[in-house]
Design a protein around this nucleic acid. Structure first.
Length: 298
DNA sequence: AATTGATGATTGTCTCGCCG
DNA sequence: CGGCGAGACAATCATCAATT
């Protein structure tokens, strides 16, 4: 031990991160350089995502760091919420730091340093201090398999606010602007599958309710085009709800009855929470609004 | 286009001093 | 005495331009 500040060296991995005003328990290990892993608390600048070992260095950095929002272009703004698009090639360090931070909360993430082939979409909450990082997702610039999202993460203090669903919505809005359909990178994590299952179900329920007057004329292809979801994802989601059948010609048909009073849809396998069997009115959700997106395909 | 080198900013660490 | 915050400074790092 060389001095009084080295007393934290017995830690084998990072237990907490301090970012902005939050002290957050970490969930998984991340491959930070070894000297940064041997600490209880890792300090992260909430604007440039630089990581530091000590509170002193963090404070000094805060005085000098001139960033008040993520690098790249702001592509979406709705009140306090903004989305920035960051190019992994143009802002390599930022994106590498982002991947390391994300790994603290993602189990099986493997991408950390080879960030050039990716774009990163950063969700921020704005106040008079600046645009505070709350969540992100990454996307391959050129996905051969039609993936429109690779990794997605919301910082724990901001979870359960609908930000994950919102970012998934943004990812499909981007696909829509590219005139493509898309799907998340496989394999999905447990939490990822849960989020997507919920998103797909709600998106299709919304579509059905909005188009209930002419569902007979609607094909699976129409739904796919409208939602930018792949045919496979549309079919598997509708099938899980038990509202998909094939007619004599082998074409898919929707079997739906819309309850115009409650605004809900009768489904065989709807989620039953709290033992209630009455269909729950689906919760309001944070939707990405196409008119607020200022983005052109890469 | 890729590599190298210079330059200026930033960090890690040492030291001192305060306080419980 | 031990822990913590702050100033100083050498070493390191990122950036950008020049060169191959």
């Amino acid at each position: 031990m060389r001095n009084g500040h080295d007393t934290l060296n017995h830690y084998r991995s990072i237990q907490h991160v301090r970012i902005g005003s939050y002290l957050i328990n970490t969930w998984y290990q991340a491959p930070y350089p070894e000297e940064y892993s041997r600490t209880d608390v890792l300090y992260i600048c909430e604007f440039c995502l630089k990581y530091m070992k000590s509170n002193f260095v963090s404070k000094r950095h805060k005085e000098n760091c001139c960033m008040k929002h993520p690098p790249g272009n702001e592509i979406y703004r709705d009140g306090q919420l903004s989305v920035f698009e960051v190019d992994g090639r143009k802002n390599k360090i930022y994106c590498q730091n982002l991947c390391l931070l994300a790994k603290l909360f993602l189990d099986h993430k493997t991408l950390f340093y080879d960030v050039e082939p990716f774009l990163f979409y950063i969700l921020t909450e704005t106040d008079n201090q600046g645009c505070h990082f709350v969540a992100y997702f990454s996307k391959e610039k050129r996905s051969k398999l039609g993936y429109n999202l690779s990794c997605i993460m919301t910082l724990p203090p901001h979870q359960r606010k609908g930000y994950g669903q919102f970012l998934i919505d943004i990812s499909y809005l981007l696909s829509k602007n590219e005139h493509k359909v898309g799907s998340p990178e496989k394999p999905l994590s447990d939490l990822g599958l849960l989020s997507y299952t919920k998103y797909w179900k709600q998106t299709l329920m919304d579509f059905i309710l909005e188009n209930k007057s002419h569902l007979g004329m609607t094909t699976i292809e129409d739904i796919s085009q409208h939602t930018s979801m792949t045919l496979d994802d549309v079919i598997s989601t509708l099938d899980k709800q038990g509202i998909l059948t094939k007619n004599k010609q082998g074409q898919f048909e929707l079997m739906v009855t819309v309850d115009t009073n409650s605004g809900s849809i009768a489904m065989q396998h709807d989620d039953i929470s709290g033992g209630s069997v009455t269909p729950m009115p689906y919760p309001k959700r944070l939707r990405a609004k196409q008119e607020l997106l200022t983005w052109v395909p890469y």
